[in-house]
Each structure stands twice: as structure tokens, then as C-alpha cells.
Nucleic acid binder design. Structure first.
Lengths: 263, 263
DNA sequence: TATGCTAAATGGTAGTACCATTAATTGCAA
DNA sequence: TTGCAATTAATGGTACTACCATTTAGCATA
């Protein structure tokens, strides 16, 4: 990780912090983020047209575009082209978290072991929260998902089954009714499911008794039996992660196909 | 959240997925990310100069720069100017996670309640992990931090004390020796500490008995008594978060000053 | 009314020119 | 020869212009 060196004491405040000449686009980004944070810009609001805004800010259109581009990639704004187009403030994009995580992983900053370990621990809390809060709709969505998974298994459509699995974890996370938990676990799951996908695509034997395990888990969840549900999830994840650890390194690059974005 | 509508069944695959004309800079970003993921580009590597790379890719320098800018903001590359400058692949930037979280919060996608709740749960796991793995160096760093906190308290430097607190949570997370957990909890803590900072800056009365509580916690940690440590942390966080919830909404924009970046 | 064409707004891209910063090189002087 | 300063070259940062592509709205024609 590139953050801080193994600093033992952060005590003596540097007399001279490193100068970081702020580039135009950074200043622009900061100003827009500021207005967003202060609530002067809300989701749905439209920024002035590029040419006009560039003039207002007294910067070139290039610099402004780099700023907008950055904000777009950060999920803060959305750029629409054509008449009535422009830069619109978005509602935030949970997918960014996954992208950051994926980048960190690609760059070798975090390891599979760290991912699996955190996933196990966080998923644990997700299960407990879901156990306490899941609504009937949540249960039904999970049940329907398991049915789809069963169908995919019967058809031998193992890649579809992996897709179902991803959806399963998404639905479970959603049942916590806490978007932060949901986002975090989703970003971890996303990367690891990429491995599972690659493994299955490579002909690895699918997880046995998956359907039964899922049904058993759902039953515990419905019974609000957090301890049992956690135990089941825990052992399942351990078995899945065990397979990932013996996965050939070079295939680390395998990704899931991008999710279909619901407009 | 902007992700998926409350979809009940993701079953019927769309016959026509929405077309998403890929812009030049997206293609460039994707290609570079691809090479990073495949390991053909490693941290420290240098990309060709902008003018040259633009020619190789047969795109304008603008498009290329927008791509590089995006990757820079994502923490994937670092741009250095001057001779021997250029775009260098970085080792990942844990701070990006916090930025994403902050954006989501600013945009109103996630609430203080969701943040505090997830923080409590995840911090819980952090404490348990730290309890199991903290080294002597970790303990000493925490002890030194508490000493600094005590000094700041004695001097009435309450803002410094908030800084110390932030550092405390950072050190604790570091003691898990799992960077993923560490990053996640740091990003949550970052936002919430912003509130604490604003509160203290606004003259709010500081948390009483903080030092004693910290010392007690550290003792439990040293004794590897996870349950006690968790309980202590839990009650402390609850009391802190209780204060945040009755915090005036408009001040939600208050941020901590940017962290000094260790070069 | 419905259909298709036209025009205007706006983001996307290319290209050029120039500035600012940085590192290597050169050159002059001690 | 050594040391420091000026020069030069490489490279990102910015501005400006021109034009393309897409999208909406309005107009015209059947």
C-alpha cells in the first residue's frame, strides 16, 4: 500500500508540508465537490454548458473537461450529449467502490487472502443484520434466486449459476437495509466472484450441494437464527475461499463480464 | 442508491441491451487497466509520453489526457511533469476508498445512520482481528498515541485531540494486518471524524474520560481479551455516535482538513 | 395528424501553439 | 580539476480553434 510508511510516531508536525501546486482541474473539481457537499448542488441539477462554465471559471475548456471527466469517473456527475445535454449531478454510484477495490487488487496492493478474510468477517455482520431486518420481500427474493440457481444447475449452465450466486450475495446484502454494508460486501464479493467465474469457466468442478446449503441457510435466516445462519455462511465461504487460494496466480486478471446497468 | 431498481426477478434477459457508445478515453482507460490487471504493467513502470502514446493509439492528445486524468484520480497512475516525467503506474491508493465514500455521503446516497451502524459492526471485527494479531510494535504505537492524546487534553488542544483520535483508529486498524479491513474502516472513520472535528471546533464539550477509556481498551487488547475490548469499543462508539445523530444537519459539509500526505 | 427534414445546442475529438517545470548537459570560472 | 551557473531538451499543463456526432425541438410537407 502506498499510504503511510510504517510510521511509529506521527507526532512532530512537519514545519513545511510538501507543496503541491494545484492544477486547474483540481481546483475545479474541488469547487464543484464543495458545492455538492454544501448542498448547493443536488442530484439532478445541471451545470452550465462546458463552453460557458469554462468562461465563468476563466479556464480553458480542456481543463474544465478534465475536471468533469474526473467527477464523472467518480460517479459525481453524469455527462449527456446532444441538445439539452450537459453535466448533471448524480446520486452517487455504489459501483465505484468495487472499481477502487479492483484497482487496488490489480495493482497488487491487496491480496486474495486479505480479501477473503475481510469478506468472511464482514459477511458475518451482514448475515446478522439481515437476520434481524430482512423483510418478507427479501426472503422471497432470496428464495426465487435459489430457484433460479437450481434451474441453472439442472441445465448444467454453470456460468449462469455463478451469476445467480453473485445475485444471491447482492440480495442478502440488500436485506441488511444498510447501503454502506451492502456496498462494501458487494465490492469484495465482486472481485472474488470473478475468480469463481474464471474457475468455473475453466472447467473446475462446481460447488457440490450448493442448493441444499442455500436453502438451509435461508431457513435459518427466516427463523431469525443468526448464529446458525452465520455458521452456515462461514463454513460455505471457507470452502469456497479454500478453492480460490489454490487458484493459479496468472488468472488473477479474469474478470466477470460487466453487469448490465439498469438504466 | 443508483444501482438497481427494486427488481424482483432478474430473469428475462433483455433482447437488446442498451447501446453504450464507448468514448475514446474510456477505451484507453480500459486498455491500460487491462494491461495492469494482466501484470504487463506493474507499479513503477512508465507509460510513453503523452504525445507519443496519443500517436500510437491514434487519438488526440486531449482524449488521452482525459484517460490519464481519470486513471490518476483513480490512483492507478501518477503524472509527473518536467523532463523524465510522464505517467507512472502507482501501487494503489487507499485514500480513494474514502473519497468515494465521502462523495456518496455528500450526494445523500448514504446516511449518517448507515455510516455509524456499519462502522460499529466493522470496527467490531477490526478489534477482534487486532486482538488476535497485534504485535508489540502495534501496542506501543497505540500507547504512544494515547500519551499524545493525554498531552493534547492537558493543553486544552481539543482539535489536536481529534487528530489523535483519528490516528488512534488508524493504528488500531493497522494492527489487524489486513489492509482491506484497514482501508474500509478508515474510510468510514474519516467521514465520521469530520463530524467530531466540526463539533469540537464549534465548541462542543469533549468526550469525558477519553484517556481512561482508551487505556482500559488498550489493556484489554494487550490481554488479548477480545470480548472485553469489543464491549469497550462498542459502548464508546455508541456514545460518540449518539452525539453525532443530534448534530445539526447543515454542518454535514464540514470536513477534516486534508491529511498530510506522507510522500 | 403524422412523418420527415432542418436547425440549434452540446458533448467528443483533433490539432496547434505556448507555458511551466524538471533533469541533464554544457560551459565558464576559480 | 572542481564547482556552480546557464542552457537546453523533455514533458506535463493550459488555452484556443475548428469540426464532428448526437440529441432535442421546431418547422414543413404530405
Amino acid at each position: 500500500m502506498q499510504t503511510d510508511p510504517p510510521v511509529t510516531a506521527a507526532a512532530p508536525p512537519l514545519a513545511f508540508a510538501p507543496i503541491h501546486t494545484r492544477r486547474a482541474f483540481e481546483e475545479i473539481c474541488a469547487r464543484i465537490r464543495e458545492q455538492v457537499a454544501e448542498g448547493r448542488l443536488k442530484p439532478g441539477d445541471k451545470l452550465p454548458a462546458e463552453r460557458e462554465l469554462a468562461q465563468q471559471l476563466a479556464v480553458g475548456r480542456n481543463a474544465l473537461r478534465e475536471a468533469l471527466r474526473s467527477l464523472e469517473m467518480a460517479g459525481v456527475v453524469e455527462l449527456r450529449k446532444g441538445a439539452k445535454g450537459g453535466a448533471f449531478i448524480r446520486g452517487g454510484d455504489a459501483g465505484r467502490l468495487a472499481q477502487v477495490m479492483q484497482d487496488m487488487f490489480s495493482l497488487g496492493s491487496i491480496s486474495v487472502e486479505e480479501l477473503t478474510e475481510s469478506r468472511v468477517h464482514i459477511q458475518d455482520q451482514v448475515v446478522r443484520l439481515a437476520c434481524a431486518r430482512a423483510t418478507r420481500a427479501d426472503f422471497e427474493a432470496l428464495a426465487a434466486n435459489i430457484d433460479r440457481t437450481e434451474a441453472a444447475t439442472r441445465d448444467g449452465a454453470f456460468l449462469d449459476r455463478v451469476e445467480c450466486s453473485r445475485e444471491f450475495y447482492r440480495l442478502l446484502a440488500q436485506a441488511t437495509h444498510n447501503q454502506v454494508m451492502s456496498m462494501i460486501v458487494a465490492s469484495l464479493t465482486e472481485i472474488l466472484m470473478g475468480f469463481v467465474y474464471a474457475r468455473v469457466a475453466g472447467g473446475g468442478k462446481p460447488q457440490p450441494r450448493l442448493i441444499e446449503k442455500r436453502r438451509e441457510f435461508l431457513a435459518a435466516l427466516r427463523a431469525r437464527d443468526a448464529d446458525t445462519a452465520c455458521r452456515l455462511m462461514h463454513t460455505h465461504l471457507e470452502s469456497v475461499h479454500r478453492l480460490l487460494k489454490e487458484f493459479p496466480k496468472p488468472l488473477a486478471a479474469a474478470h466477470l463480464p460487466p453487469r448490465r446497468r439498469a438504466a
